[in-house]
Design a protein around this nucleic acid. Structure first.
Length: 853
RNA sequence: GCGGGCGUGAUGGAAUGGUAGACAUAAGAGACUUAAAAUCUCUGGGCCUUUGUGCCGUGCGGGUUCGAGUCCCGCCGCCCGCACCA
């Protein structure tokens, strides 16, 4: 019997699809379109199992939708700008562009081996001048619309390497290469006004009904709408120009419990004090060393410094509060100053206890009026509490009522105003790096900051750059900066900042609708193909990428590059889990683990050993495949050994798509065995005579319809693992069936159609072997006859007091009364009733019966 | 620290609030074979002086319900994000 040889079969069908241009998308207003998109990869050079899983999921959807009659757009591109190319340049002396394009060539070749139904004619890389030139045009339009502007912002500065560091390059407050303590430095940088859209981006989340609830919730919390009170504390004595400290609080009702006023180390008041107070200046400098990430600030030890200044309480001129600088207060949020209410905020309480500041209760629990000791009393805003001393006369009220009353009281009295605040900050897009999209502006001594003329776009990155000096090579380039002012023509300098790579990925979905256009988009194409009907990617992009893309689509709409209907570019979103693997390590001479790749390790009954030396190997936790832990399986090896269909089948089976999947060698082996089994069945069926066996034929036809129904349901609901399980079941049924040859042939043809989205090459081979017409990739998805799904009798479980005690076989349509009679006559039921009267008899038709005594 | 999620046999997992463990893997037994591989068949959560339509069992502790893996409250553990990794 001929063995199925993936190495021969797979390229054959890939060529057949190419030749027939099966996956080339053409705009056709007479057909309903379906746009499926997976988050495009960074071209690291090798695809990994996460890619295989991500792109197979998208491919299953694309192939299924194609089979159900949609005009499918399924494109692929490269998120090709970013740090790794510069790191490679520094470490290996390669040119970032050359390195990137080589990686793209390598990865494209690997992806093509997977047999994905991609329209490669639309391929793009964000580092193509053809792409980023259009991005520059949009940047200029955004400047014109007031959506892009410059302001000062802090960056991580490495004082030894004299360069700006990304957050991931700051390890324990030190530069990753130099090891020098990182400083915060202010630079003038470009920003997008995403915060103007805070309310809009928040409200529109309600319309994203096909997004995971958790992602919408994460975005909602990120945008962070709050209602609070803004007011000022008067300083008892002015400090220079400053006589007040303005604060924003979401709990103004706790004002009578204020213990101190806290300001950010970057607050103007703190800065004005630094000149005369070396200790205070040292404290602020220390705070500024922490790095800029919020996680760093929040997890650091909470520290404060008493400025010695005092402010007056707005409700009691005799009440003075100390002003402290605190390292956990962010200048970017609210006013950069707060009042601390230790009795009702754990962080403020810890801070107050640490520095001996007063703790004043403002309310207590209704049933327990004990004062706060080491645990702050922080009830939900909906809980009613007893007020001790409320200036607006509250006695018993819940937190939300108290906040509303307080804001009204302050507004009426004229010392404060209700303010709606958002946590969302404007999007800083400047990067002091080479390998990114140049910001297309020119600095002119006379005209200031001037956008480049559109006819001069793209502002191309120079190719002749060196990385022997730290910092941005664009700054060191001998000629690239020199240009003429677009306004007055005098010599001027190009902006050397490039754009955040999140900008590149904020509109590629739109560019795919017209990837070769000489404008960012083409109206007819955008109108037809947008929005993305199904977007698929990692949960790690739940907030930033997806929020930026939502903003950018709005900005593109305002600047005329997308229709209004495309401001929510992703109609449905699916977030898939990671591919994980066990980790393996031997112990190094210094006692630290030396990570080992799975193919270096042999697993034996007595434990894992290193194949080469027999040295024992520690089997570690199952974690995301990563180069640093070496727990990677190279898809290319798997494809080489078993073929693409096996890899695709494995990543679709077992684990639900939204959860992590563990790659195991036995799982891959099992996937391969199953596909071989299907092929053996096919060969058998192809050789069988065409006899009939009425009863078995009907049973197999019914099983076929059930399989179609259930596999379809699985795909529709993104439960590919369940579709796979049903296909296993169907295969078992088919293998055991006594049906005649003709019936089996019909069943196997349907099997190949159902398998086509997951294992397209094998499916074609089955289809053609059994005489299917044309390509199975172009065959119409099989229809279900509902009549074939109906079973007339069923097993009905019977519980007594909630425990399963018996079962009866009944017709599905049997009336309740008859079921009840049968149940009460059942021997097992009678035994458990033991003569006790039946209190209640619950019959859930078609489900279960519960007898309660 | 804050925000979000997840937790079911040896393993991956299945289960509109209704028979917990579908389907698959590891393992064990058997068939075929000179033998092995491949293939096929069976067993496959735990417990037992009662082998019984027995008892226990979905991270831990409570609760709601005729009935909870599923809903609610409180813990524990792991994962993702935290604005310059992509």
């Amino acid at each position: 019997m001929s063995r199925y040889n993936a190495r021969v079969v797979e390229p054959k069908w890939q060529q057949a699809w190419d030749k027939a241009e099966v996956f080339t998308a053409k705009r056709d207003p007479d057909r309903e379109k379906y746009y499926v998109l997976e988050m495009f990869p960074y071209p690291s050079g090798r695809i990994h199992m996460g890619h295989v899983r991500n792109y197979t999921m998208g491919d299953v959807v694309a192939r299924y939708k194609n089979a159900t009659g949609f005009n499918v757009l399924h494109p692929m591109g490269w998120d090709a700008f970013g740090l790794p190319a510069e790191n490679a340049a520094i470490e290996k002396g390669v040119n970032p562009g050359a390195w990137t394009y080589q990686n793209i060539d390598d990865m494209r070749a690997q992806l093509k081996m997977l047999g994905l139904s991609l329209d490669w004619s639309r391929e793009l890389a964000v580092c193509d001048a053809e792409y980023y030139g259009q991005q520059q045009a949009m940047f200029i339009d955004m400047m014109g619309a007031g959506l892009a502007y410059r302001k000062n912002a802090v960056v991580n500065w490495d004082p030894v390497d004299m360069t700006v560091l990304a957050n991931e390059q700051v390890i324990d407050g030190k530069g990753w290469r130099s090891g020098a303590p990182v400083e915060r430095r202010e630079l003038t940088q470009w920003f997008f006004r995403i915060s103007d859209f805070s309310g809009e981006l928040l409200d529109a989340l309600d319309g994203l009904t096909e997004w995971p609830e958790k992602v919408r919730l994460m975005q909602q919390n990120w945008i962070g709408k709050s209602r609070g009170l803004q007011f000022s504390f008067d300083l008892t004595a002015p400090q220079g120009e400053i006589s007040q400290v303005e604060v924003y609080t979401t709990r103004p009702d706790t004002l009578m419990g204020a213990g101190f006023v806290g300001i950010s180390p970057d607050h103007p008041l703190a800065k004005s004090l630094e000149a005369d107070n070396p200790d205070l200046a040292a404290f602020c400098t220390d705070c500024r060393r922490m790095g800029t990430s919020e996680a760093d600030l929040e997890t650091a030890e909470k520290k404060g410094f008493d400025t010695g200044l005092r402010v007056k309480h707005p409700l009691d001129p005799d009440w003075e509060l100390p002003v402290w600088i605190a390292n956990f207060i962010l200048m970017d949020y609210g006013t950069g100053a707060i009042f601390g209410c230790p009795a009702h905020d754990q962080r403020d309480l810890d801070f107050s206890r640490k520095y001996g500041l007063p703790v004043v209760d403002t309310f207590t629990a209704l049933e327990n009026g004990a004062p706060v000791t080491d645990l702050a009393f922080v009830p939900p805003k909906t809980e009613t509490v007893q007020w001790i001393n409320h200036f607006a006369g509250l006695d018993v009220a819940n937190g939300q009522e108290a906040i509303d009353v307080t804001i009204r009281f302050a507004e009426a009295a004229g010392w404060g105003r209700g303010v709606t605040n958002y946590r969302l900050r404007d999007w800083g897009v400047s990067r002091q790096r080479y390998w990114g999209c140049p910001i297309p502006v020119v600095h002119c001594d006379d005209c200031g900051v001037v956008p480049e003329k559109k006819e001069n776009l793209p502002v191309e990155l120079p190719k002749d750059v060196t990385f022997d000096k730290p910092g941005n090579p664009l700054d060191w380039h001998p000629t690239w900066r020199d240009t003429a002012c677009p306004k007055c023509g005098k010599p001027a300098r190009r902006e050397t900042d490039t754009m955040d790579t999140f900008v590149d990925s904020s509109w590629y979905y739109a560019r795919f609708t017209a990837p070769r256009a000489t404008s960012p988009t083409i109206a007819e194409d955008a109108e037809y193909w947008m929005n993305v009907d199904q977007y698929i990617g990692g949960i790690e992009h739940a907030i930033l990428h997806l929020l930026y893309a939502r903003f950018f689509a709005r900005a593109m709409n305002l600047t005329g590059h997308l229709p209004k209907s495309a401001i929510e570019p992703f109609k449905a979103l699916f977030t898939q889990g990671m591919v994980t693997h066990e980790t393996y390590a031997t112990s190094g001479s210094d006692g630290r683990p030396v990570w080992r790749t799975p193919d270096e390790v042999d697993k034996t009954d007595s434990g894992a050993v290193l194949r080469a030396t027999g040295e024992p190997v520690e089997v570690g936790p199952i974690i995301k495949m990563s180069k640093s832990k070496k727990n990677v399986v190279d898809p290319a090896d798997i494809i080489d050994q078993y073929g693409a269909d096996t890899a695709r089948w494995f990543v679709m089976s077992d684990s639900p798509p939204e959860r992590d999947v563990e790659w195991t060698a036995s799982g891959a082996e099992a996937a391969w065995k199953h596909l071989q089994r299907i092929w053996r069945l096919t060969v058998e069926i192809a050789a069988a005579d065409t006899s009939e066996n009425a009863a078995a034929d009907l049973a197999l036809a019914k099983a076929t319809h059930r399989a179609v129904h259930e596999v379809t349901q699985g795909i529709e609901k993104f439960a590919f693992n369940k579709s796979v399980a049903k296909l296993y079941e169907f295969a078992n049924t088919l293998a055991k069936s006594d049906a005649g040859g003709a019936a089996k042939r019909r069943a196997m043809l349907v099997m190949s159609q159902l398998m086509q989205p997951m294992t397209p090459h094998l499916a074609e081979e089955i289809w053609t072997t059994l005489g299917g017409e044309g390509l199975v990739a172009q065959a119409r998805w099989p229809e279900v006859d509902p009549a074939m799904l109906v079973d007339d009798s069923m097993t009905l479980p019977i519980q007594v007091n909630g425990k399963r005690r018996s079962e009866i076989t009944v017709s599905k349509t049997m009336p309740k009364e008859e079921v009840e009679k049968l149940v009460l006559a059942d021997q097992a039921v009678l035994k458990y009733l033991a003569g006790q009267p039946v209190k209640k008899l619950i019959v859930v038709p078609g489900r279960i019966v519960n007898v309660v005594v």
